[in-house]
Write a protein that binds this DNA or RNA. Structure first.
Lengths: 83, 83
DNA sequence: CGGTTTTATGCTGAAAAAAGCATATTGTAG
DNA sequence: CTACAATATGCTTTTTTCAGCATAAAACCG
């Protein structure tokens, strides 16, 4: 299921979702991606200021890929962003 | 046209393409995004090690958005039968 | 060709993120 | 409720990225 990630929060939510779908803990994922659990936590909770390399490491560990597209008006807002 | 960016190089290429499509110079884009021309150059040439915030700044300036998708597993209905 | 714009490269110092460790908080079974 | 697992927070040190400036190397155009 494709997720639009226009913010760190949406990106974190997408990552968390993919991780839970695979039944992994943050510690497991961090180990796979060569990162630390604390960092995974920060990223998933949408805290600003992470490196692209960390995101790529998580994507690889979670079998995700990034697609760059022109913004279309048809925003499909994520539930998380309403609150 | 959507661009898959599994590496810094692909991401840089997608950004460069979007910039040229809008007829902007790196300096113009950097100004719009609140960055410097040198950094735009580094990102476009695919040098590793950039911050996610810089990418988001460029995306916003270029009207791009990031879509997170599963690499394998689930069937991707749109693309698979083309080749 | 020469001159101008654009893009790439190389420094330094300042700022920021990650590692590493400790620990608090929350979640979840039993 | 209790105990354990999972997640979030805080701190210091190390590592990395960015700004800022200079300049080299291309690309463009008369």
């Amino acid at each position: 299921m494709a997720h639009i990630a226009r913010s760190s929060r949406q990106l974190g939510a997408a990552i968390q979702r993919a991780r839970k779908q695979k039944g992994m803990s943050q510690t497991e994922l961090a180990g796979l991606a060569g990162l630390r659990q604390e960092l995974v936590s920060k990223i998933e909770t949408g805290q600003e200021g992470t490196r692209l390399s960390s995101i790529y490491a998580l994507f690889a560990a979670l079998d995700l890929e990034m697609v760059i597209d022109q913004r279309s008006g048809k925003s499909a807002p994520d539930i998380e962003d309403i609150f």
